[in-house]
Design a protein around this nucleic acid. Structure first.
Lengths: 198, 198
DNA sequence: CCTACCGATCGGTAGG
DNA sequence: CCTACCGATCGGTAGG
């Protein structure tokens, strides 16, 4: 884990709160400094650019998702149960690191060239976890026919919307949301009174 | 339809292209003007603020979604078939108005107070179309048990991710995407060899 | 970590 | 629609 008390860490925390609330471009370095009781220029004793701060927040969020979900994919559980666990883990990361997750989702495109590509690779690596589980499930006949690449994209498309609408003090907790996501994505909406193996 | 050749319309087109590519805050009025071969200040003969332009783009996108989907909800078709049509219509709007859809999804939060609330109401009105269809489907026993409010949110969460990853010149066309969305959200991922009514 | 400052750019306006 | 400009603010730096 990272030291949570250094000035650098305080900067990341303040920045992710402000970025998530107002967006990266609409947040100035002086806004971040004010939050910590500092002058704008003083930040540069700890960071070397505003974009560095964004990059660090985004990469940490990507790492958090990967760290929570990747270990699950090693399990031998039935595919549908495994995917339910992955959905729960993903939702858990969003709920427990909300401002980071919002920035990850909302502002990663504001990174410049090479770093944007780096984050793109992290995002694809994460999606690949789902893609491979789906492909394996297909091979075992535990999923209906589908294109793993497109399906994993659609699935993450659904999960990635969560940071935009989740309310920490709302009526919905992480497990309720994850259960309903899993029901929707794994079982669908149709009424199915009977469901049997081939 | 709107006149597509007035300067005002050209401004909206140029702005939505730039906003969608770089974000609202990172786009200057001079960027928009340059795209039209004008000086920055000249824009203000046609618009009264940068935010006005954003608001217009966002409201038009919201209207496009509503206009495409609302008429479908009047039909007497089976719920699952109806929802499949709604998903197709939604995806069609994204694909045919991509830059507007991106701005709608990416930048609507940058609107100030009252206008943000207005757009929030439009978004909720749109979600209500899905919510009501789901509730009606439940009442008719055509859907499995679920909370219509949460489920419509999850469903739109999935659809709203599309503008962020759709590539106009990619391998996927609107119908393929819509069919796969519908399969995922209505049937789920699980292998179901038998499916019968109660 | 502050003071003081850099050049650049921002959204928007006046006057024609 | 342009020229010329407004005050404000931007990310970042020098020197201490």
């Amino acid at each position: 884990m990272v030291d949570t008390d250094t000035r650098k860490e305080q900067i990341y925390e303040a920045a992710s709160a402000l970025f998530s609330a107002h967006g990266y471009e609409a947040t100035s370095v002086r806004d971040i400094a004010r939050e910590l009781g500092l002058q704008g220029g003083s930040l540069y004793a700890h960071i070397s650019s505003k974009e560095d701060v964004l990059f660090e927040i985004v990469v940490r969020a990507a790492d958090a998702f990967y760290a929570a979900v990747a270990p699950l994919t090693e399990r031998a559980d039935p595919t549908l149960e495994l995917m339910r666990q992955m959905i729960h883990a993903h939702v858990g990361v969003v709920v427990n690191n909300l401002s980071h997750a919002v920035v990850f989702q909302q502002d990663w495109r504001r990174l410049a060239g090479p770093r944007k590509l780096e984050v793109l690779a992290l995002r694809d690596g994460y999606e690949a976890l789902f893609r491979r589980v789906i492909a394996a499930g297909l091979a075992r006949g535990e999923l209906r026919e589908c294109d793993p690449r497109l399906t994993s994209t659609l699935l993450l498309s659904a999960l990635n919307g969560l940071p935009a609408w989740f309310q920490p003090d709302g009526r919905l907790d992480a497990d309720t949301i994850a259960d309903n996501f899993a029901d929707l994505l794994l079982n669908g909406l149709g009424a199915t009174s009977v469901r049997s193996e081939p």
